[in-house]
Design a protein around this nucleic acid. Structure first.
Length: 470
RNA sequence: AUUCCCAUCGUCUAGAGGCCUAGGACGACACCCUCUCAAGGUGUAGACACGGGUUCGACUCCCGUUGGGAAUGCCA
């Protein structure tokens, strides 16, 4: 039983999207579950489309998610010598051959095959090497795929997959410009790096049989495979920009916690009984690749938001506060004067689906109230409100600074409502409007505690003047 | 066109032939709680795509149909 080694191998042609993140997560979980090794490899053989910003974005996303890798990042562009060494060997003993076919010929061939209702594929024109060509002429290198038999593999998610070699053609493994191609590089890398379990996107199922043939030609042992299905947008269509947030970093910017995104992602395509919430430790011990859903799943932002709130409510407030800080700065809120962030989190957790929302809701704790929500004023500021505010101010002024805590404030206001013979609503709402300028806030006692004694009393006095000028 | 893959409430899933009168979660709706908004609690509606087999018995196994998706690149 060899030690498990998995990898995540994105191509840096754009940011890390949620589909890739889930594949990375599954691969990471598999390695962690089996006390194995997780490798990060950047598949940048496409020199045209690969960019450094994309590499940076992928690494930043992985770090933010906390998907730590034990080896890498490796870069395929740094391994060209190795690929070429193997290709030359294969060329020498006939496992591969030079192909001099022009793009025009290939295109014509494709057209003809399509017209005949056949699957377009290379016809092996240059296989015999009998053409009148010299290696100095421009050529690519093709892998000589077996003609007979079938390729079979057991996919840990999909089960048994089988395809006849007659369906496969001789794929290009080195371009005319001398650069090796993806299908060859992955095999060499996974072989050289000792990858035991290849967990990747569903779009590679079709590539797997031809890659297996390459493994065999290379005399390498074939790893295990698991192909994860794709993630669809909430409308069931393929995920794209028009679905709004698709990149991992966008979710951070929108106020999601990495724990929540990870939990949402692990549940999207997998489940364990009736459980919804999984800590990282739970995921590692319970996650089972063979129980991952075979079908594509639609991304439901609504459920992610629910999940995010679960984490905002249950994670240590200090931890949530650390993430919240970023959003406070982002929204230009000076939180140096006002409640400490962890206290803010405690007060706002259950009414915030995202940290972005939380920050946006927190302004009145840090900034003066200069406007009052007209709808709330209309509903709650009545003729008798002046008296309520006056008596509340008097009552609250009695509370000593050292007693200015939610329970004491709650008691004081309850007693006042009792004395006045009115409900708490008639006391709480005018005060809420006075102290926050809005009709919505945490409990008025908690709100006043966090706003602080002096500012609370000031705001009540000010509201008294501005809202009930008599 | 061909090959491969897929198919349980609107969505994510549980289901490894009898445990299924198909369970949970999000969302929706109703009620309770309540100083607002939430959170929380309780409840309601809501699915095995279709047709054939196999079996004493199919959500579960097999075949087909339909509907999706992917691949067929000198992209990855």
């Amino acid at each position: 039983m060899t030690a498990v080694k998995t990898r995540f191998a994105p191509s840096p042609t754009g940011f890390l999207h949620v589909g890739g993140a889930r594949t990375a997560l599954y691969s990471w979980l598999y390695a962690r579950h089996h006390h194995g090794t997780f490798v990060l490899r950047i598949e940048d053989t496409d020199l045209e489309r690969s960019t450094q910003p994309a590499i940076d974005a992928i690494i930043e996303s992985m770090q933010w998610l906390g998907l730590t890798w034990d080896e890498g990042p490796y870069y395929q562009t740094k391994r060209f010598d190795r690929y070429n060494e193997l290709i030359d060997q294969m060329l020498a003993d006939g496992r591969a051959y030079r192909c001099y076919c022009t793009p025009e010929r290939l295109e014509k061939l494709r057209q003809e095959q399509m017209a005949r209702g056949e699957k377009p594929r290379y016809d092996g024109h240059c296989r015999c090497g009998c053409g009148d060509h010299s290696p100095d002429e421009p050529h690519c290198v093709r892998f000589r795929n077996p003609d007979e038999g079938t390729v079979h593999f057991h996919d840990h998610i999909r089960g048994d997959v089988e395809i006849a070699n007659s369906e496969l053609d001789d794929l290009v493994i080195r371009r005319t410009d001398g650069s090796p191609t993806y299908n060859f590089c992955v095999v060499v890398d996974d072989m050289d790096m000792g990858i035991t379990h290849v967990i990747r996107g569903e779009d590679h199922v079709n590539n797997t049989p031809r890659q297996i043939n390459i493994y065999k030609a290379l005399g390498a042992s074939v790893p295990e495979f698991a192909h994860v299905s794709m993630i669809l947008g909430d409308d069931g269509a393929k995920l794209s920009k028009r679905h709004g947030a698709v990149s991992v970093m966008q979710y951070r910017d929108d106020g999601f916690l990495p724990e929540a995104l990870l939990n949402y992602l692990v549940r999207l395509g997998w489940g364990s009984g009736d459980r919804e919430i999984f800590s990282l430790e739970d995921m590692i011990s319970l996650f089972d690749i063979s129980h991952v859903s075979k079908s594509a799943s639609a991304f439901d932002t609504g459920k992610l938001r629910w999940m995010n709130r679960q984490y905002i409510m249950s994670l240590p407030p200090e931890k949530v506060a650390a993430h919240l800080e970023w959003h406070m700065r982002d929204q230009g809120i000076d939180f140096s004067r006002g409640p400490a962030l962890p206290d803010l989190v405690r007060a706002l957790a259950e009414r915030s689906e995202t940290l972005k929302d939380m920050a946006a809701q927190s302004r009145y704790f840090y900034e003066d109230v200069t406007e009052y929500d007209p709808a709330a004023v209309k509903k709650w500021i009545k003729a008798g409100t002046g008296e309520v505010l006056d008596r509340a101010a008097a009552t609250l002024a009695q509370v000593a600074p050292e007693d200015w805590k939610a329970p004491a404030l709650h008691h004081a206001l309850e007693a006042l409502a009792g004395e006045m013979g009115i409900g708490m609503g008639k006391v709480g709402m005018p005060l809420r409007i006075a102290v926050t300028g809005r009709g919505v806030s945490p409990g008025i006692d908690v709100t006043m505690e966090l706003v602080g004694r002096e500012r609370t009393l000031e705001r009540i006095a000010r509201a008294r003047k501005e809202l009930l000028p008599l």
